[in-house]
Design a protein around this nucleic acid. Structure first.
Length: 408
RNA sequence: GCGUCGGUGGCGGAGUGGUCAAUCGCACUUGGCUGUAAACCAAGCGCCUUCGGGCUACGGGGGUUCGAAUCCCUCCCGGCGCA
């Protein structure tokens, strides 16, 4: 995998680049679609192409449980299995350490509010002990070696270590894979964040080692390490610094956040990471977050937000304002979601008119699955386009600053 | 006409003397959703409120009772059966 920076914004740390993968080149900054179970829920590959998405990210934990990574390998790898020929990455299962662990059963989310219930992460035993799961009322428990999961599908017991996550990801065969890490709660204290971060660093080394061992025989090409450290500047910088010294092909910025911390944390990390490698801000998000992240120097984003919102009836309207199409006011609103939007849902395809808010509202009220599909296509298009505009802006600004690097 | 069963909130449908403004669905209204335990979750849903409470309600009317959606009488309406 090769990464080249083609333009830099003179007014910020933003940069535009090209990320070459065996399945094509990604123009960065880019928004990546989340295809957890090997699909962006409710959207076909053909429809995805119409959104302009350049890359998708699938999930190790989900695909390992079902249909099984061996089966995917048998199918010829995830690309072939899901019919997506473009660039593909897989997440390591690190996020499930959080969502099935510290966050389980609480009202904890990736980007939380300041007043959330504290997610207490008591010190864990240092050895693998399956019994602790039941004692803690969660589906994932961490120890030094790895994480013990109770399947959310059937309650069966599973074990992930960095080595295992990498092995599974190699079986899945994405272009970019991610080191196994621990996503911590936004409000975890300094002591715990440090402990978790250092463990994540040890896991990063092990992931790297496992990756190197298998890389020749497998399809997976590039490995990204994950920066942690929570809301603490010293830890974030340290994490970025330590990981930079390892031989990763790129870096993810992980963790969960209190909204106000997001921007600062991303800023600290990007200042420490090497300039010549791509940075992926995991699981973020909202339009303003993308703009802020790009300004800080982030190259890649992925987020479930556009599709999850879409499935539940919320779309990005004019100027990115969120609209809940189930609200009464849209029942007789026969205009498109956004008159200025060029997506197939709003603008239609090849001269055929698009869909109206009222029609979408009807689909959602009637619980017709097409509603989720149409709204997902629109929301994805919106975010992809937003990032594309930013990318163009960086390239154009850069040109005026007499950058010799030509555009592609 | 006689007999019989039944009439409860927008709808379906519980409740059959007090703990009932009334279980539960659905519909409706509004929130929330950021590396997907998520086509999901939460709250509200008679009227008024200074949020303590107050008022009007279970087909209509009249009784019994300290107290009735629940018991009795009567009227109206509907289903079924017999003429």
């Amino acid at each position: 995998m090769k990464f080249e920076i083609v333009a830099r914004d003179p007014h910020s740390r933003a940069r535009a680049g090209l990320l070459h993968t065996p399945h094509g080149t990604i123009e960065t900054p880019a928004f990546i679609g989340v295809a957890t179970q090997g699909t962006i829920k409710g959207v076909t590959v053909e429809q995805l192409e119409a959104t302009g998405l350049q890359m998708l990210i699938a999930n190790t934990y989900h695909l390992y449980l079902r249909p099984g990574d061996e089966l995917v390998r048998e199918a010829g790898g995830l690309h072939r299995f899901m019919g997506w020929n473009g660039p593909l990455m897989t997440d390591s299962g690190g996020f499930q350490v959080f969502s099935l662990g510290a966050a389980f059963g609480k009202n904890l989310t990736k980007v939380a509010h300041e007043d959330i219930e504290q997610a207490k992460d008591e010190r864990r035993p240092s050895v693998y002990d399956p019994d602790i799961l039941t004692q803690h009322g969660r589906l994932a428990v961490i120890d030094e070696e790895g994480v013990t999961f109770t399947s959310h599908l059937d309650g069966s017991l599973h074990r992930f270590t960095p080595e295992r996550s990498i092995e599974i990801q190699h079986n899945l065969g994405a272009d970019i894979i991610v080191a196994f890490d621990e996503c911590t709660a936004a409000t975890a204290d300094w002591q715990y964040q440090k402990e978790a971060m250092e463990r994540t660093h040890r896991w990063a080394e092990r992931s790297l080692k496992a990756h190197r061992r298998n890389i020749e025989a497998n399809r997976a090409q590039a490995l990204f390490g994950v920066v942690q450290g929570g809301r603490f500047e010293d830890l974030r910088r340290e994490s970025a610094h330590v990981l930079s010294s390892m031989n990763f092909d790129g870096f993810c910025i992980g963790g969960s956040y209190v909204k106000e911390d997001l921007d600062t944390a991303v800023g600290w990390v990007c200042e420490e990471l090497p300039e010549d490698k791509p940075r992926h801000l995991l699981g973020i998000g909202e339009p303003e977050d993308l703009v802020n992240g790009i300004e800080k120097g982030v190259d890649l984003f992925d987020c479930v937000q556009p599709t999850r919102l879409a499935r539940t009836g919320t779309v990005y309207g004019p100027k990115g304002m969120k609209m809940n199409l189930l609200n009464e006011q849209f029942r007789r609103d026969f205009s498109p979601i956004d008159t200025d939007c060029g997506c197939p849902i709003c603008a239609g395809v090849e001269g055929k008119g698009g869909y109206s808010r009222a029609y979408l509202a009807h689909l959602f009220h009637a619980r017709e699955m097409l509603g989720a599909t149409l709204a997902s296509v629109h929301n994805l298009y919106y975010l992809v386009n937003l990032v594309t505009v930013e990318r163009m802006r960086i390239r154009n600004n850069s040109k005026h600053e007499s950058s010799p690097t030509p555009n592609t």
